[in-house]
Amino acid sequence: MDTLTPKQAEQLGMSKSGLYRATRDGRFERIARGIYRDRNAPTADWDWIEAATRRPEATICLTSALALYDLTDTIPHTLDIAIPRGSRIPTTEAAIEWHLFDRQTFDLGRTEIDITGSSLRIGIYSPERCIADAFRMRGAVGYELGRDALREWLRRGGKPAHLMEIASRIPRSKGPLLRTLEAIG
């Protein structure tokens, strides 16, 4: 196991103090409070690991996901993570911006990907879902994010019908998205 919490260490027969000693001796490195990683584990994104460890349903969204899909030139200054509304927002050391998404639409367009260099997985929204969310949250993320991502997505051959199908299921995104599609079209 490349990532370990004190609770997991106890389940494997290692005491918490044994884990802390192993960290002090250099066998493990501390990623964040309560999250440790084998010193010899492959390189991995510690922010992703912390998000996935703190909230198993963590899902990369908005600017972070659009940047991964190369649909925006914006470089995110934090990792945008969605969790279901009503969930407790964890305290993290990483630069993570937690977003609360409606439980009824939380799984819409969501898939899971492997965290490179780790045995963990993290959720990520599809490009279509991210564009619809950018239009829905345009007041918070900026009007340009959704518009620019939409233009690039269309340039790559995106299907507006599929995008509108997703947007119609997400409140406050269908109208602005439809108007922008008509203006671009």
Results as ranks from 00 to 15, higher is better:
T53R: 00
W46P: 00
D47T: 13
R21T: 12
G157Y: 05
I49L: 14
T78N: 03
T59I: 02
M1L: 10
I75C: 00
I184S: 05
R27Y: 15
A132F: 02
Q11K: 13
A32L: 07
E29H: 14
A161H: 12
A167M: 03
E50M: 07
F101H: 13
C130N: 15
L154R: 09
D2P: 03
T59P: 00
R147T: 08
P6H: 08
L178S: 14
W48L: 15
D80R: 00
M137G: 00
G142T: 01
A9L: 07
T3H: 13
D80F: 05
M14R: 12
D80M: 03
T43F: 06
E97R: 15
M164K: 15
D148W: 00
I124G: 08
E29T: 14
A94P: 09
T180P: 03
T180M: 12
S15Y: 06
L150T: 06
I60H: 01
E29A: 08
A22R: 14
R24A: 15
S64P: 02
A52D: 02
A95F: 11
M14A: 09
T5Q: 07
H99Y: 14
L62D: 01
R30Q: 15
Y20G: 08
A82E: 04
D47A: 15
L120R: 14
S119E: 15
K16G: 13
L100K: 15
C130D: 12
H99P: 06
R27D: 11
L100A: 15
D133F: 04
T23Q: 12
M1G: 10
T105Q: 11
S15C: 07
R156K: 13
G157F: 04
R21W: 13
W46G: 02
E57K: 01
P160E: 12
G13K: 10
D70G: 01
R54M: 07
N40G: 10
Y69H: 11
P56N: 09
P76M: 03
T91A: 13
G146T: 01
I131Y: 04
A58Y: 00
S126F: 08
E165Y: 05
I166A: 03
K7I: 10
T59S: 09
R27L: 13
I122Q: 11
R103S: 15
G109D: 13
P90W: 07
H99M: 05
F106C: 07
G109R: 13
L19A: 06
P171F: 03
A51S: 07
T72Q: 00
E165W: 08
G158S: 08
G18H: 07
I131L: 05
R24M: 10
G13N: 08
T59F: 01
E93F: 03
R85Y: 09
L150S: 04
I124D: 09
R110P: 11
P76Q: 02
G157T: 05
T59W: 02
Q104A: 15
T5R: 11
T92A: 14
C130K: 06
K7N: 10
V141R: 05
A32V: 10
I89K: 11
A140M: 02
A32E: 11
S87Q: 12
A134P: 03
T116L: 14
L79V: 11
T180L: 01
E152K: 14
P127A: 11
G109I: 12
F106R: 07
K174F: 07
A161P: 03
T180N: 03
A134W: 01
